[in-house]
Amino acid sequence: MLDRPTDNPRPVAVCRPDPRVALGSEDALRPPDQRHRRLRQDLGGRRGPGDLLAAAGVPNAVIDLDWLRRAWPSPPHDRFNTGLTLRNLRAVAGNYLEAGSERLVLAGVVESRQERAGYLAALGVDDLTVCRLRVDLGEVRRRLTRRHELDEQGLRWHLDRSGELEAILEQARTEDFTLDATGLMAPEAAEQALRLTGWLPPAQ
C-alpha cells in the first residue's frame, strides 16, 4: 500500500509496483463530448473500483476525466480539450490527495505516450498504472448499434470512432496491462482490474 510518511503532509508513491494512480481505458465506447461514458458506467458506478477499495478500507477517489473536459468549443488544435483536462485534473487530484485519498482511479483514455506523461505531470506523483479495458470490436459495435438505434448520425460517428481508436491504442501501447472485458459484468471488470493493479489482494 501507499507509504504516507507522517513527517510529510503530501503522500508520495514510493515505487512502481505500488503506484498511487491507475488510469483505465475502455476502447471505442466514447461519444464525441463524453468519450468515457461507458467506462464510467463500467468502473465508476455500482460496485465500481471506488466501492471495492472503500470496502477494503482504502481511502480513494474516482475521477471521470470526461467531466474535466466538458467545455465547448474545444480549440481547433485540441480536439478533445486535453489541455483543459490536464489543468482541471491538477486541481481536482490535488484536492483529493490533500483530503486523504491514497488511491486515485481515473476513468479515461490515453492515446499516446506524450498524453500519458501529461497526466503524470498533472497528478504530481512519481508513477501511474494504465489498465486498458479491451472489448471485442464486434461486440463494441453491436452495443453501439443497440444504444444509438434512433440516432443514425451519432451511430455513424461512434462506429467510425471505434475502429479509429482501436487502431490508435494498438499502435500507441500506452498501457501497463490489458484486461479483456468482453464477457465480464461491470463489477467483475472493476475487481479484476484492481487485482491486476495490485490494489486488491489476489482472489483466493
Rank of each mutant, 00 (worst) to 15 (best):
A13V: 13
A22G: 14
R46D: 11
A186S: 13
R35N: 06
D136F: 06
G24K: 06
G24C: 15
R143N: 05
T85R: 09
G138Y: 08
N60P: 04
G154Q: 03
V12C: 06
L23E: 09
V21N: 05
D27P: 09
A189K: 03
R46V: 13
G138H: 11
L194Q: 07
T145W: 08
P76L: 09
D33Q: 13
R143G: 01
A122R: 03
T174K: 02
L155W: 09
E102D: 11
G198M: 03
E26Y: 14
L200H: 00
Q114M: 00
A13M: 13
E111I: 00
A93I: 08
N60W: 10
A91R: 15
C131H: 10
E191W: 02
N81P: 10
L43R: 11
S74W: 07
V92G: 07
E26W: 13
A122P: 06
D127R: 01
L29A: 09
L104K: 05
A71R: 14
R103H: 03
C15M: 15
V110K: 04
W157Y: 15
D78P: 02
N88L: 06
E191P: 03
A117V: 05
G45P: 07
L150R: 10
A61M: 08
C15Q: 15
Y96W: 09
R10Y: 11
R38W: 12
D66A: 14
A172N: 00
D127E: 14
D127P: 04
G154P: 01
V14S: 14
G44F: 03
V140E: 02
G50S: 09
L194C: 01
A203T: 05
R156W: 08
E102S: 09
R132A: 15
L123W: 11
H158R: 12
R38F: 13
L194H: 01
I63V: 15
L120F: 00
L39E: 14
A61K: 09
P76N: 06
R90C: 07
N60A: 13
L97H: 02
Y96C: 06
R30C: 13
L155R: 07
V58C: 06
R116K: 07
S25R: 07
A99S: 10
R40W: 15
P59L: 00
G154D: 04
D18C: 13
L169G: 02
E188N: 05
G154W: 01
L123C: 06
T174Q: 05
L123G: 04
V135G: 00
P75C: 04
P11T: 03
T6H: 14
A13W: 13
R69F: 02
A189R: 06
P32E: 07
D180L: 07
G183L: 05
G183T: 03
R161N: 12
D66T: 15
L29C: 11
A193V: 04
S112Y: 01
P202W: 00
L23G: 08
T174P: 07
